[in-house]
């Protein structure tokens, strides 16, 4: 009787297509989001995450149609992030078939948004998405050394990653998507130190993101304290299947579905 660790493929979507780039740059086409979501669900994915990676930059609304079509075919939880700015955006995504929404820049700009969403829909709907970077800025040196970034990692803020996560949980975030901008796309493994620090301060589930390359990276993230592991390119490039990841987790004694 144990909660299974979740394996979550992430589909970064731009203009209706799945894309993948290193550190959010040089985006390449990786397929049709609805089709890929169906494929991953059939392979045993425990959830699907869509991130509209152009939403913040291009001020573009997220892709309600893709969510709707996916939710008609795929009966596992669906998280959608990117460009979520208001409780009305959340309502529209939930009505389209999303179960959870990822909130990032808008919550940094206006933290009260977290409480507004949690009050209206419950904390379990709200995934706080954090793009985190190791920094040598003065702000970082005063804190944990990890700062929150915006605009897909291109802009550093002065927010300490741990302090921001702590505050967001108090305000009503139900889950943390901890994405390492330094590790993202490198395939050198998750930032384990960052996961450990986040686990230590978090009372809500922690999803490790950024850097998965080998099967062994996944059990490492769980050992560091993650409740779920998220990856994108290793799945899209067919270097690993969901089943490969789950076998590796099982061999390390981690319970999976």
């Amino acid at each position: 009787m144990t909660l299974a660790v979740r394996v979550i493929p992430c589909l970064d979507v731009a203009a209706g297509r799945v894309v993948k780039g290193v550190n959010f740059e040089n985006l390449r086409d990786a397929g049709d989001p609805v089709e890929l979501a169906g494929l991953y669900a059939a392979q045993g994915a425990d959830e699907i995450t869509f991130l509209d990676v152009t939403a913040t930059v291009d001020e573009r609304a997220t892709m309600y149609d893709i969510v709707r079509q996916t939710a008609e075919q795929v009966f596992i939880p669906l998280t959608v992030g990117g460009g979520v700015r208001s409780t009305d955006d959340v309502a529209r995504l939930l009505a389209s078939g999303a179960d959870k929404v990822g909130v990032n820049s808008a919550a940094i700009a206006r933290p009260e948004l977290i409480g507004e969403i949690a009050d209206r829909f419950g904390a379990q709907v709200l995934v706080l998405s954090l793009d985190i970077k190791r920094s040598t800025s003065e702000a970082a040196r005063r804190g944990s050394g990890f700062v929150v970034t915006t605009h897909g990692g291109r802009r550093e803020t002065e927010l300490d990653a741990l302090a921001w996560a702590t505050r967001a949980i108090e305000l009503g975030a139900g889950e943390l998507l901890v994405n390492s901008i330094d590790a993202d796309g490198t395939k050198d493994g998750y930032d384990l130190e960052l996961i450990r620090l986040m686990r230590a301060i978090s009372s809500v589930p922690v999803i490790a993101s950024g850097g998965a390359g080998r099967v062994s990276d996944f059990p490492d993230a769980i050992a560091a304290g993650a409740d779920a592991v998220l990856a994108a390119s290793v799945f899209h490039n067919r270097e690993l299947t969901i089943a490969d990841v789950k076998s590796a987790l099982t061999e390390s004694g981690v319970v999976v579905r």
């Binding site: 909660l3 660790v5 979740r6 425990d46 379990q124 139900g174 978090s202 409740d227 779920a228 579905r257």
Partner: peptide, 13 residues
Amino acid sequence: ADVLPHMGWNTLT
């Protein structure tokens, strides 16, 4: 529980 919400796939009896 230490971690809430209880989020994910669980067994039952």
